[in-house]
Structure formats: structure tokens, C-alpha cells
Design a protein around this nucleic acid. Structure first.
Lengths: 341, 341
DNA sequence: AATTAGCACTCAGATAGAACGAGTGCTAAC
DNA sequence: GTTAGCACTCGTTCTATCTGAGTGCTAATT
């Protein structure tokens, strides 16, 4: 168990390191107005904290830096959300005053606000397509052999798939197919479409439609799961200005992580809704050792819809980011629900 | 006018510098098997070429590096396209063997091929939405007050806009509107939709539709020009591994250029179809001084559809890139036309 | 018993000089 | 016109030294 003074020093040290990015020494701590003990005392305390694994040195005679365990402790026990100034609150709320016709635009704005006010990188996962439910299907014929299948979901999202018809198909057939689909698949989650098609609809379609096999192939194709996530980035390059990314190697491998699929998988794999903080290697991502990830979720009604995330260096301004991510996810949820009515 | 030998040396030097990224000296040139004059002679020639502005030194006693004018001369007078090996040709053609149902996928593949075979960054501008023509319009009602307007273009692209209906609208009204639009706006270019709506359709709609004003506002909104370009990147980080980008500052400013709108404007502003090479400062882009841009166009039928581009360092393997960009733009055009039939 | 002053020690980073080598331009000989 | 020779330049690399911010430990102080 840590003493009161150790807690005090721990918080001080992390806060200091977060802004300076330099190892913190006993002397610089002792110089502060709110510190009333000598460098030597502080050295003893820091040595104890180091022994417990909360602090590290970069070399034998350097100042201290929080270890991953130290950040974890800080985040779990010492973190108090930062108050935003009235000005900041106003300008954030202001961004949400506009009329939004599309869910996507709302998400994009949120990403922008988040990256601009944190100066880190924001990632948003859009509504999970697969969890949406089918509201309506339309088929539009482009030529004798080509058409577009339009899938409208309950959340107002619209997907479209280009399809190739069998040569011999007739307009009535298409209409019949669409009617059957709309009749039988309404409010079915998208990830279920394909199995429902093959299980329940096969016989109906076989009975009513010529070219049954080709039509089934076409529909199977259209209902196949592809690229299920919408991803919105903002401020991708912000994080590169951080002093921990002086090295070109590191920049490239971080950019590769950001472009890649693993990060998305990581974001989707949060165990519960609400706020999560993952520090450095807690994320099982190569090239992400120097970064932390703060995520939360947003929703419409009772549905879980998507994820809001901020990526910054391990040495992140946790209090501020926690406050901001919490705020914008609430604003986003609020506005989405308003829109939905 | 340059002598035969100067041309020879110029070509040699650029080719050498392109692979080594190091200033080229007279001795290293003289060591080549196909060079039969002494370092001193070469020095004299290089000094002349420098005086004419084709070469530069990085410092007083360094080897030579091509100047921007030198690259320009090389590209205009000394460039011969590189032959690809049979293996390479095969594996490129192979990528296009798959069935593509969507224009976008074809473009994406092209970007991928281009970036992987050049090891630079590929950017594709998709079909210019505004130049497409309207093929078909559909309206899908989501709720009493919300719907989706679906715009299908002649090139197989599908756009959708979420719209808010006036509260009092009836299903027949919507049907009537859609019928009128399909009747009057077929094959009208998208950029003309709005003006045609206001000029020709206003009176028809006023005569037939209740809530005329609100419907006009809704349609005006949907037909407004927004975010007209689709942009596909591939190999965004390839270029960062080039030795000219050791510096974090430069990386960040280059990434900002790549993310920004200016580069797209630059790409769209090519004076003619076909191949263009822009070297360093010839692109009027801050942070792009060390880069060159090679672009060409692709098309369906006689329509200009989009732009293919490769971004690399000024010290780019021009012969190879020219060959590749030419090849893939032809393959892309070919496959788009096949699809169109 | 806790705190602090004092001191020897460590180490990254900055600074300076020497040696090296790849390059140049110029001149004179071929 | 070409080339050998030579003095010179300058970036790079290596080594040595110095500096300063930091440490741990011990002994004195409170």
C-alpha cells in the first residue's frame, strides 16, 4: 500500500512528465511551491516507488519516468477528469448546433472535435453494419444484365450492391423477387440475411422464380459479409508531432498500425460498453508500444452502435482526454437520438 | 545544344542517382565498363552541364545531383520506358482476371498494383461524379418524415441522400415526384441536375405536387454538389521509406499534403488527357518540393472518367513508373469498357 | 525515526579536434 | 581534345573531454 506522500509524488510526477516528456528528477520536484521536503527525501520515496515497479529510469543516473504499471496505477487511482473552460465547452457545443441529415456527418464532426481538442488522433467506428436490421430492399435495373440492389437499414444507412442478372430474366421476376425479400426479410439483422435466404427463402424462390439457381447465387453474393466497418479518422498526423516519434521507423510502423485492420479489431473487442483505457503493451499491437488508447461507445436508443477512440502517446493527457471523450460521446448519442426521434 | 557525350553522361548520372540517392562523382562514372574517358574529362563535362543548369552540387566538393531543370531535360529528351519482365507482366494481368462487379473495386485494384510494383504511392481519382449522367432515381420511405433518395448513374455508380419529407406528404405524392424526375432528368449530367430542376421542373412540380416549396427545398438539397471526388490511395507509406524523408518535419508536411485537398485539385487540373510528369516545384504545393507526380487518365468509351497518379521522390524511377502507369491505365480502361459492354 | 546535507559516482549530450575520403578545379603534359 | 597530377574543400566519422542533471549512500540533524 502506498503512503499519502507516495500517492502525491506519483501524481505529481506523471503530470509533470506528461507535459515535459523529460525524465523527472528529485530536484525539479522539490522546487515546486506545494512540495515541502528536500530532494533527498524525494529520492528515497522515488527509489521505493521504483522498487515497487511504478517508476523506471532511462539510464542509471537519470530522472524517473512512469512505467506501464505506473500509468495503470495513475489511471486507476489518481485520475480525476479535467474541467473544461467555458469557452471550450461553448465551442464544442457549437459544433453540434448545425442540422445533420446524415449519421455519418455527425460521426465525422465528432471525430474532428475530438482530435482538435485533444491534439491526438481520433478514430470512430461507425454503426456496426452487421448489427443493423433490414428496413427495405429495392432493385434497380441498369441494363438487361446489370442492376443495383439497395439495402436500407433501420438506422438510416443505405448500402448498395451492383449485381449481374441472368440474361433471360424478366422485369416481373425482379419485382417478384424484391417483393418476396421485403416480405420475408424485414427487420432481419444484416448478418443473418444470408442464412435466412438459404434456409427459409430458398423454397419460396424456387417455386416462384425462373433461373432460380442464378438468382440465388446473385443474392448470396449481395448478402455476403463484406468490409463491415466504417472507419473515420481525424488528426491522423497529430500524434506524429509527439516527441516519442522522432524516429522515422517508429512513424512508419505506427502509420501501418493505424491503416491496418488489427486496430479495428482491437477497438471492436472491448469487453464492455463505456470507457476503457489501454496503455502501451496492454494493446496487443506491434508498433503500438508507445501509445495508449482511450475508447468509449455511443448508441442510439438501447442499441450499441459504435466506438469512439483516441490514440495518443502513453504519455497522454489522460484527464483531459477522458473528459473530452466522455463529453463528445454523450453529445453524439444525444444528437443521434434527436435525429431518430 | 548538348553534345552526344553530354547526353550520354546526363542519362548515366540520373540513372545512377536514382538508384543510389548519393551525389555522383566523376570517378565512379569513369569506372563503368561503357565509359571510356578519364575522370578528368568527365569532370570537365559535368562542370559544363552544371553551368548550363542541369546539374547541382550539394556542397563545394561534392559529386553532382540533377537539378530540377536536369530532371525536366531527362524526362523530356532522355527517357525511354522500361520493359517489364514477363513475370511481372503476368502477375499484373493476373490481378485483372477476377470478375469485378463494381467500378470501385477495379479502381482499388489498380491503385494496389501501381503502388506495389512501383514502391511509391498511388492515388486514383474516381469517376468524376459531376460528369456522370443520371440513369435512374428512386425514393425509399423510411418513416413518415424520412427517406432516401437513390441516384444511379450511367457508369453504374450509386449515390444516396437522406432526405426529410414534409410531415403532410402522401405516398402518391412521392411516387409522382419520382416519376416526374425520372421522366425529365434522364441522362442529365449530375452537375446540371440542380439548374434543370429549378428551370424546367419547377412549374411541372408546382402544378402536380402539394407542399411544392418544401419538396423543392428537399430536392435542391439533394442535388447540391457535395464532395464530388472519390479518392483511392494505396501504398501511402511507401514513399516515407525513401532516403529523402529522414526528417520528421518533412514526413509530416508531406502527409499533410497527401491528406489535403490541394493535391486533388492539382490532379484535376492537368491540362490535357494522357501522361503528365510534374517535377518538384513544378507542382505548386508546399511540402511537395522533393516529390514528383506522374499522372494519366482513364476512361469509359469516349468519356474522361478519372485520373491515375503516382507520387514518388523527385529521384524517381521515371522509366519504370511511366511504363507501369501507362499499362495499368490501359488495363483499367479496358476492363471498365468490358464491364460496361 | 524521519529528514536532510554532503559527496562520490554515472551517464547522455554537447563541443572540439584529427583523420579520412570522396569529390572538386586547375594546370601542364601528352 | 584528353588526361595525369596536385592542391584544396568539405561532409563524415572517430575519439577525447567537459558539463550538468541526475543518482545512491552515509552521516549528521531535527
Amino acid at each position: 500500500m502506498l503512503t499519502e506522500r507516495q500517492l502525491f509524488l506519483m501524481r505529481l510526477l506523471v503530470n509533470d512528465y506528461v507535459v515535459s516528456a523529460e525524465p523527472v528528477g528529485s530536484r525539479s520536484i522539490s522546487k515546486r511551491d506545494d512540495v515541502h521536503f528536500s530532494p533527498a527525501t524525494i529520492r528515497n520515496e522515488l527509489a521505493d516507488l521504483e522498487e515497487m515497479g511504478y517508476l523506471e529510469k532511462t539510464h542509471l543516473s537519470s530522472g524517473r519516468v512512469p512505467s506501464e504499471k505506473g500509468y495503470r496505477f495513475y489511471v486507476d487511482h489518481l485520475l480525476s477528469p479535467e474541467m473544461l473552460s467555458d469557452d471550450e465547452m461553448d465551442s464544442i457545443r457549437n459544433e453540434y448546433q448545425k442540422k445533420f441529415s446524415e449519421t455519418e456527418e455527425l460521426i465525422r464532426i465528432t471525430a474532428k472535435v475530438l482530435s482538435e481538442f485533444t491534439n491526438y488522433t481520433a478514430i470512430m467506428l461507425g454503426p456496426e453494419l452487421l448489427e443493423m436490421k433490414l428496413k427495405h430492399i429495392q432493385m434497380v435495373k441498369l441494363s438487361q444484365t446489370q442492376g443495383v440492389l439497395i439495402i436500407v437499414t433501420d438506422t438510416g444507412h443505405v448500402e448498395n450492391r451492383v449485381v449481374s442478372f441472368p440474361e433471360t430474366i424478366r422485369a416481373e421476376d425482379i419485382e417478384k423477387i424484391v417483393n418476396i425479400l421485403n416480405d420475408k426479410l424485414k427487420m432481419v439483422p444484416l448478418f443473418n440475411l444470408q442464412s435466412r435466404l438459404n434456409d427459409e427463402l430458398a423454397s419460396v424462390l424456387r417455386a416462384n422464380i425462373r433461373d432460380y439457381k442464378k438468382v440465388m447465387a446473385l443474392l448470396n453474393n449481395s448478402f455476403a459479409i463484406n468490409d463491415p466497418e466504417q472507419i473515420f479518422y481525424s488528426g491522423k498526423n497529430n500524434i506524429l508531432s509527439q516527441p516519442e516519434f522522432q524516429d522515422v521507423e517508429k512513424i512508419i510502423s505506427l502509420l501501418n498500425v493505424l491503416e491496418g485492420k488489427e486496430i479495428v479489431r482491437e477497438l471492436m473487442n472491448m469487453p464492455t460498453r463505456g470507457l476503457h483505457i489501454r496503455i502501451g503493451r496492454e494493446n496487443k499491437l506491434n508498433g503500438f508500444e508507445e501509445c495508449s488508447l482511450i475508447t468509449t461507445t455511443y448508441s442510439v436508443g438501447s442499441e450499441h452502435l459504435g466506438t469512439v477512440a483516441v490514440i495518443g502517446p502513453k504519455r497522454m493527457a489522460y484527464p483531459r482526454v477522458v473528459t473530452l471523450i466522455d463529453l463528445v460521446s454523450k453529445l453524439l448519442t444525444e444528437n443521434l437520438n434527436k435525429q431518430e426521434r
